[in-house]
Amino acid sequence: MVDTYEYLDSTPAEEARRLAAVRRYQLVDRPAEPAYERIAYIAATILDTPIASVTMVEEDRVWLAACYGLTVRQIGAEPGLCASAIGHDGVYVVRDAATDPRTVAHPLVTGELKLRFYAAAPIRTRDGFRLGTVNVIDKRPRDPEHKQLRSLEYLAEIVADELELRLMAIRGAVAGA
């Protein structure tokens, strides 16, 4: 198991709070929701990639809350992709994963997928936790335009807004019970 906090430059206590924030939205281990599937589709369309996803980064896995172009719902939390992207304020870009030292040994790069391009914007809550990403993947190296990367950031902000609405609904359901 990989300790997430080691590559997020945070303490175990901070990582525990981040993981509690991931759980409070009750999105992991649930069926994909149409709103997040639409966001993944839009991300893939804007960046013209065959794959996109909305992810939640847990301690030992990355849960794909929605995806376009993939059938898997979870992957390992190895450093280099989603688990590293949440440690950045802006968009995390890997133009050629086969030559980038951050990703060259990642299983999605060396394995069957042969990932080459990856860009991810962190999903940040109002209280500052980075829960996961809105990301795009291609099997060929890419050099995205600034406006494409800015669009990815906006999509991550939309996911964050949707998560807050989800949290209000969860809290309302509990209060009404």
Rank of each mutant, 00 (worst) to 15 (best):
E162Y: 00
L165S: 08
P31G: 07
L19F: 02
G76E: 09
I39T: 01
A16M: 10
E112F: 08
K139H: 12
N135W: 00
V109R: 13
R116L: 06
I51W: 13
V136C: 15
S84I: 06
M1I: 04
A77Y: 03
K139A: 11
A173W: 04
P31H: 04
A32S: 15
Y68A: 14
I75D: 03
R95E: 14
R23Q: 13
H146Q: 15
L155M: 12
A52D: 09
V136Q: 07
T99S: 14
G80N: 04
L19Y: 05
A105H: 13
I123R: 03
R23P: 01
L115D: 00
A13Q: 12
G87K: 02
G111Y: 12
P101V: 07
E78Y: 12
R61P: 02
W63R: 01
I46R: 00
Y68Q: 13
D60V: 08
R130H: 15
R126V: 02
E14H: 05
T49S: 06
I46T: 06
A156H: 05
A35W: 00
T55I: 07
E78G: 14
P79Y: 01
L47H: 08
E164A: 11
R30D: 02
G80V: 12
V104C: 00
P144C: 14
T45C: 10
I170M: 04
E157F: 06
R73H: 13
Y68F: 14
A97N: 10
V159G: 00
K147D: 10
A121T: 04
A77W: 02
D161C: 09
D161E: 15
A121C: 05
G87A: 11
L19P: 02
P141G: 13
P144W: 00
A98I: 11
P141V: 14
I158V: 11
D100M: 10
P79M: 10
A66E: 05
G176T: 04
Q74G: 11
A175C: 02
A97L: 10
C67W: 01
A97K: 06
L64C: 09
T4A: 11
I42D: 08
L64N: 01
D29L: 01
D29M: 02
E112S: 11
E59S: 10
T71N: 15
